[in-house]
């Protein structure tokens, strides 16, 4: 069960139970809907962008523990960042969960997002972890709908 406890760490379980920034954002000026047709996970990411920075961010929707926790922690990580920094985090996160980035031995800004590194041992769950990030990326770039298929 070691890979499993790596995947379902307490922090992830906690964010699943009590997702942060889990609401509709009334002041949002960007939003996008993310959908994983394979499992039916669905979420909306709301952004309030001002002077090219993420002033506020929130999400709502339904999904598995991994997708919900990833969305919750994504909002915490991205809030206050510039558009460029948010995009860079998205790239680093995506490379980490797909196994392209050695997060321990290369310079990166992932911080506590590294707890999602265990996802790469579960290929079918990578999309769960990256759905919120893809959706945030789409919202930043004015795409309204993103699908992980």
């Amino acid at each position: 069960m070691s890979e499993l406890s790596e995947l379902y760490q307490q922090v992830i379980l906690d964010h699943n139970k009590k997702p942060r920034n889990f609401r509709k954002l009334e002041t949002a000026n960007h939003s996008a809907e993310g959908y994983n047709p394979l499992c039916g996970d669905q979420l909306t990411v709301y952004l309030h962008l001002e002077d090219d920075a993420v002033r506020e961010i929130s999400f709502e929707g339904s999904g598995c523990a991994i997708s919900k926790a990833a969305a919750s922690m994504m909002t915490q990580a991205v809030k206050g960042k510039s558009k460029h920094e948010a995009e860079q985090l998205f790239t680093e996160f995506h490379r980490m969960v797909t196994g392209e980035l050695d997060e321990e031995n290369t310079q990166n800004a992932l911080g506590n997002l590294k707890i999602f590194s265990g996802v790469r041992e579960f290929p079918v769950r990578i999309k769960c972890a990256s759905l919120a990030w893809h959706t945030m990326h789409a919202a930043l770039n004015n795409q309204e709908l993103v699908s992980t298929e």
Binding site: L38, G40, C64, F122
Partner: peptide, 27 residues
């Protein structure tokens, strides 16, 4: 209650149990 089918499926798989988790092509 409170546990998504995909999480159930992943944990069952770790114990060698194959089940289907999802909408079963019947949304």
């Amino acid at each position: 209650d409170e546990i998504h089918a995909h999480d159930i499926g992943t944990i069952l798989d770790q114990e060698g149990i194959a089940v289907r988790a999802g909408h079963h092509c019947a949304q």
